[in-house]
Structure formats: structure tokens, C-alpha cells
Nucleic acid binder design. Sequence first.
DNA 1: TTCCGTTCGTTGCTGCCGCAACCAATACCA
DNA 2: TGGTATTGGTTGCGGCAGCAACGAACGGAA
Lengths: 167, 167
Amino acid sequence: MASGSAARKPAPEPLVVLEEFLPYRLNVLAGLTSSALAQIYAERFGLSIPAWRVIVTLGQYECRTARDMAPDGVMHKSTVSRAVSALEKRGLVKRRPNLDDRREEWLALTPEGRAIYEAVAPEALAVGERLLSVLTAQEQKTLSALIDKLTRQARLLAPVEAEGDEA
Amino acid sequence: MASGSAARKPAPEPLVVLEEFLPYRLNVLAGLTSSALAQIYAERFGLSIPAWRVIVTLGQYECRTARDMAPDGVMHKSTVSRAVSALEKRGLVKRRPNLDDRREEWLALTPEGRAIYEAVAPEALAVGERLLSVLTAQEQKTLSALIDKLTRQARLLAPVEAEGDEA
DNA sequence: TTCCGTTCGTTGCTGCCGCAACCAATACCA
DNA sequence: TGGTATTGGTTGCGGCAGCAACGAACGGAA
């Protein structure tokens, strides 16, 4: 790699060094892990990331759609809607009207859906484990706490669509 | 928020709890910070994230395009290419042929480009600071080290386009 | 020199996401 | 009761990213 050492003039005054900028680094890391996982979801099971999230959520609970799929506003309504209808079309998810509130519908995994869930989940977990394997148990705890703190803070900084304000 | 407590049946056996799954949490965090930043880039300066990255990189150095913009394979070639031509069209970046290797071109910020750089950079940094403000100095160091470890590991797990293999 | 393999960069195509507008059903309030 | 605001969910539209195929230029070997 003895190439192009002349490429980088230090430049007047680097205000921002991208490689040290936290949001950038978070994006890079998240992107790498996402694509590692997406490869499994997509190539082997034909699932998009939103679809994967829907399946996992329905694997934990048997809740209803949208709001429940994206409790905090991650994933847009439309994203969830499309993921669900794709899954329904493939017969992995079944809709059932909620008679108490006919605006919403109950969603559940079909047997086929659950089969896929049980096939994908361990692999996804394995990737997560392999990722975390470079950290000690203590470091993992620390990381978890730091992520939580940052996420809380980020949620304050991001507008999150400003739901339900009037002023 | 006393709504829908009946929504969540515990379900047979939750193999994966999404809210505890590291890749998911990283994605959420990265997404939140990205959109906080993107708002600044986009609304106030009409920059996409790739465009911002190009500008920042050219603000540090005065290097050439593609490979230099995405040293590690973050950002696809095509993404960089389009970002650059958009910036050129707006007169924020100038191309200059490299006579030593006419496949590539030297890129540099125009005065207008640098002006935008100097306007955006502090705001972006401020967002980064506000994010990190919930962490102590020690925690910031720890976080940085953890991110590095994980990123290294993630790069091993991700295919990264498998450049230059033959078998 | 000529030929082949490789690298830098661009562009057409496709799919996905977010926005916003919209429909349907419910909640709130006089 | 009726009217308005709110919420759950769908869909059309525009933009952007990734893939892959291509063109242009370089490097090495005969």
C-alpha cells in the first residue's frame, strides 16, 4: 500500500475530523452490523430489516401493528405497513380485526412465520454474540449503559416528528 | 398512556428481545443522531449526508475522490460520485484533472464550499457535543474504545464487497 | 508495441424509505 | 346528539442508496 501518500495535504485548519466524530462512527458501526445481519435476513430468508423487526416483535408478543412495532418512533408508520403487507402476502403473518377498535388490526405469526422466526433468530443472535465476543462481560454492561444514555439524549435532540404538540 | 395493556401476550418463548439486541440498539441510536444532524445539513444547507461527508473530508484535506472519501468502504462509489457531482453543480466543489493518473480527479472546496463547511462544521460539532454531554470524560473515552473494538470486529463479519479475491 | 487484468469513476436500473395526503374509526366536548 | 380533533393505517410520490455493467486509463508481461 505505498500508494498516493501525496494525496492528503493537511489543509488550513481541520474543524472536524470525520473519523473522530461520534455520529459518524456510530453510523459506520451500525451500518456494518446491519449489513452483516441483512445478509442473513435477505439472502437466506428474503426478509428486509423492517420485516425482520416485525417478525421478531411478533415472536416475542402477539401484539398489534404499527405503534407497537415501533414503540418509540423508530420505523415509520409506512415502513411498518409495507413490511406487514409483504409478510402477509407471503403467508408469514395473519391479520385479525380488533373488534374493540376497528381502526387497528391484530397481527400474529402464522405457523410458517413462526418457523422462519425460529430459524432466523438463532442466527441473528449468533451474529450479535460474535460481535460482542470481543468485549468482556463488564465491557458489555458498560456499553449497554452508555448506549442507553446516548439514546435517551439523542431522542431529546431529534424532533421525532413532534407528535401531538400544539404550541 | 394507560392504553392497551392487553396488547402484549408474553408469547411462547421470546428467543430474541429486540430492545436488548445490540445491532438493533446501535441502529436506533445511529438513526436518531443521523436524523438530528441530517436536519441541519438538509434544512439549512441543502446537503445530504454523503455530501456533508465529502465536504468535511475536503475540509480536512484536499484529497481526491472516491477511495479517499470512503477509505474503508463506507459509502459506495456511486454514492460518492453522485454527491460530488451534485456539489460541483452547486459550485461548492471543483474538479481538477490529475495529470499523473487521468483516471482520477483532484477535488477541492471552492471558496463557497469552504464557507459552507465553516458554517456547518461548528453546528455539527455542537450536536455531537450535546450528545456526549451526558457522558463524563472517562465514559467518552471508554465509549470510543468500545466503538473501535466493535467496528473492527464488525468489519470482519461483514463481507465489505470482498474486493480483490479470485477463488 | 500489443494484449490482458485491474482500478477509478459514471450511469441506468431497482428497491426502499420518509413525507404528506388521505380514509376510516374513535374520543372528546358542548 | 352532532361536530371537531385525534389516532391507526394505507398509498402515491420523490429522493437516495446499492448493484451491476460499462467506459476510460493505467500497469505488467511477452
